[in-house]
Write a protein that binds this DNA or RNA. Sequence first.
RNA 1: GCAGACGUAUCGAAGUGGUCAUAACGGGGCGCACUCGAAAUGCGUUUGCCCUCCGGGGCACGAGGGUUCGAAUCCCUCCGUCUGCGCCA
Length: 426
Amino acid sequence: MLDIKFVRENPDAVKENIKKKFQDEKLPLVDEAIELDAKKRANQQESDELKAQKNKTAKEIGALMAAGKREEAEEVKKKVKDNGERIAALDRENAELSEKLTKIMYTIPQMIDPSVPIGKDDSENVEIQKYGEPVVPDFEIPYHTKIMESFAGIDMEAAGRVAGNGFYYLLGDIARLHSAVLSYARDFMIDRGFTYVIPPFMIHGNVVEGVMSFPEMDAMMYKIEGEDLYLIGTSEHSMIGRFIDSQLPEQDMPLTLTSYSPCFRKEKGAHGLEERGVYRIHQFEKQEMIVVCKPEDSPFWYDKLWQNTVDLFRSLDIPVRTLECCSGDLADLKCKSCDVEAWSPRQKKYFEVGSCSNLGDAQARRLKIRIKGENGNYLAHTLNNTVVAPPRMLIAFLENNLKADGSVSIPEVLRPYMGGKDKLIP
RNA sequence: GCAGACGUAUCGAAGUGGUCAUAACGGGGCGCACUCGAAAUGCGUUUGCCCUCCGGGGCACGAGGGUUCGAAUCCCUCCGUCUGCGCCA
């Protein structure tokens, strides 16, 4: 979300930004917003003036009453020009204008970072880094559910009966591997100075509205019946929600947090052939990183964040590449983002395992997350990134560590979490 | 979940229809003075948002409504905290 002042003063830059994101249909919104804003300000001024008058008169009456001049007070009372209705009408109209304006402001995309490559859609995303050799072994890599089955590690059928499509039972070593990856990821981030957090897994509607757009909410969030509670789609929701309407002391910056949570998503929309198994599911677990920092520090943290994910995957012998989102593929609230993708030797291509975003001050403006500095307050910058999100991550893990004999080797860093085992044998 | 009490600044807290909102009183923080330095003492300072013709104006006493010329104060709804009881991993 942009600052309306910025839009007012730089309408051309805002329009240029919209064009860069190939959303020309949104161009008229800019002038609409400016018009609504002007109307709103004029209204507020009139309303404020009337209120000033009203306050003044009420005070006069008060002074007379206090002085015991009851009759004079009654006189002034009679003369009070009742502007109440006019004030109420103006305020009501302004509430409507504000609502309309906010809706538009939510729709106008964030200014993208100048470094973001221009492109229409994800086909024009740009590879910025590649680590490890994307090996294609000389034996066939089965579909990930088949690998899991060879260890008696998954029961999709029962999950379907019990909870429906999009759920899973993980069993035995595969389940242990799942927990091991999360524990390892947690410690990996703690070692890098992040504070471990377990947040609420359900949040109120107003927090949901603060952290995402309505269409997103509708497509993702599960609501608890009869309660003002939603299951979180990612811990980012409750992690950022924690700072709603707060002023953070400047000396505490940056806040570097790593949170664990289960994630629940409706995943409305098409499910392709490659999205079977545990690739796209209604429930998964995720270790996440969140940074709240001063505006000038957010580019530094952005690079640091996605690099963390790359380092983690490398330590597990999984080849990865990092793909920067081009302007057209960038979500409206983000000013820069990239996906970390892991190599799939079965599909012979990379697939997304993490997503790193710099939201700039967009979330902070919506949620009023400010930093209290020596020279006044200013909006914070917020960033988030996936550390690791199993069971999807296990797909990459199993495919890359599978040996010809059907065993799966356990990288050294993970062994302490797997009871010392160096390989899993079917 | 039930019952009672409470919600005012950085903390404790006063105010119960008008001159009481930067907001009494006290603590904390910061600055200054005294001191070789510190403690003690004294003086000063210590919210955020919106609009602005830069003179100023408006809003916020948990949140939202209502009564009134005027609400921290009276009424209604909701939220939260504490205490007791109940229930529970």
